[in-house]
Amino acid sequence: MTVIESIPEIETPSPCLPFKPDWQHAEDLQIYVKRDDLIHPVVSGNKWRKLKYTLRQLPASTTRIVSFGGGYSNHLHALGFICHQLAMPFTAIVRGDYSASLTPMLHDLMAWNSELVYVDKVEYRQRDTLAYINQLQARYPGAVIIPEGGKQPSALRGVGEIMHELAVIPDYVLVPVGSGATLAGLVGQLYGHQRAIGIAVLKGENYLESEVNQLLDRTQTNWHIQHDFHHGGYAKCSRELAEFCRTFTREHGFAVEPVYSGKLFYAAKMLIERQYFEKGAKVLLLHTGGLQGARESR
């Protein structure tokens, strides 16, 4: 049985819907939202797209899956759920010690029988080094180790499928950027005049660009990253952003959160009001799903 057959309620393609916000100059554009948050109630958005080909290709000898993330990680949440569905042991290497106060996401992982390993920032920074990976392989023989956020070459194939699901041909595609894999997957499927604009959700100018370039198989100039809308850094939320997310969710009937999707739609509003896009342009906003950042600690 394949992984897709083992995970119920996966719904692709996700809908791509016209979006008509009451923002200044929005009427001058054709705006659409790709609702990848509707793919699955738990394994939503780009998390599923980045993981599905990796999981399809798991060796038969796989004894465990190991991956990395923070206390509100959408990636760990999605992967923990999938492993629970497949009866596959899962180890989450978590940045920071939440043992005294579990986040809702970590409560879920515990309920799904995941192993939680808390590490400090110094150890967490080693997560991509060969020496650290070798240590984990020795600790967990037969384990498949998936990078933070699912950032690996197979992820680009899954993300790239978004562009082939569209009935409209957008001039611009806007997407939140944390690890860079989603942006890289989209860039590889653009053609002609199309451009991708990443909205950085963390302080990472130059770093994020280098992460995307490492994933692309050739130098491409049809993309860039906006760094003005991170609101203080990863998982940081200004009062203005918090209020925007509340108002947006109330007015438009679908949820955004302040870690990823909220920063995307906030940035889109600011760019549109500044007349960043030429009149008549088709602008696609990719709702990448994952609402762990909106859940309150217990």
Rank of each mutant, 00 (worst) to 15 (best):
T63C: 03
L109T: 01
Y72M: 05
I199R: 12
T103K: 02
S6W: 02
L285V: 06
G71V: 00
V66G: 01
F248V: 06
G293M: 08
P41A: 10
I225M: 04
R35D: 12
A131V: 15
G71E: 00
I197P: 07
S154W: 01
H164M: 13
N113R: 13
E9Q: 13
R64N: 03
I162K: 05
H231Y: 09
F229Q: 04
S99K: 11
L102R: 05
S210P: 04
V33G: 05
V173A: 14
A26N: 09
M105I: 00
D171E: 15
K236Y: 03
K236A: 02
G233N: 12
V159I: 15
R250M: 06
A138R: 06
A92G: 10
E11Q: 11
R195Q: 15
E165K: 04
D128C: 07
L106D: 02
K47V: 10
K121W: 02
A92S: 06
D108A: 11
Y132H: 14
Q24C: 03
N74Y: 08
M105C: 05
S101D: 09
L109R: 00
Y98P: 01
P21R: 11
Y124I: 07
T63L: 00
G142H: 01
R157M: 06
V175H: 13
I82T: 08
S73W: 00
Q24R: 11
H231L: 11
V3F: 10
F229N: 02
L136N: 04
H75Q: 07
R95P: 07
L285P: 12
T54S: 13
E165G: 12
L166I: 08
P13D: 10
V33P: 09
E165C: 08
V42W: 03
N134C: 05
V122I: 14
D28L: 10
R295H: 08
Q30A: 13
Y32N: 13
K263V: 08
G142C: 06
D217K: 07
I199H: 08
G289V: 14
P8D: 09
E11G: 02
A78Q: 11
G160Y: 06
H287A: 08
Q135H: 09
R64D: 00
A131I: 11
N74R: 05
Q30I: 04
F19Y: 15
P8L: 05
V256L: 03
I162P: 09
H84M: 00
H40P: 14
Y266Q: 02
L284T: 05
L284F: 04
R49E: 08
L109C: 06
G70Y: 00
I225Q: 09
R139V: 05
E165V: 04
Y276N: 03
A200V: 15
S210W: 08
A111Y: 02
L190P: 15
Q85V: 04
V175L: 13
G96M: 01
Y276A: 11
R56A: 11
F68L: 03
M1Q: 07
S14V: 03
E273C: 02
C237V: 12
R239F: 09
A196Q: 04
T63F: 00
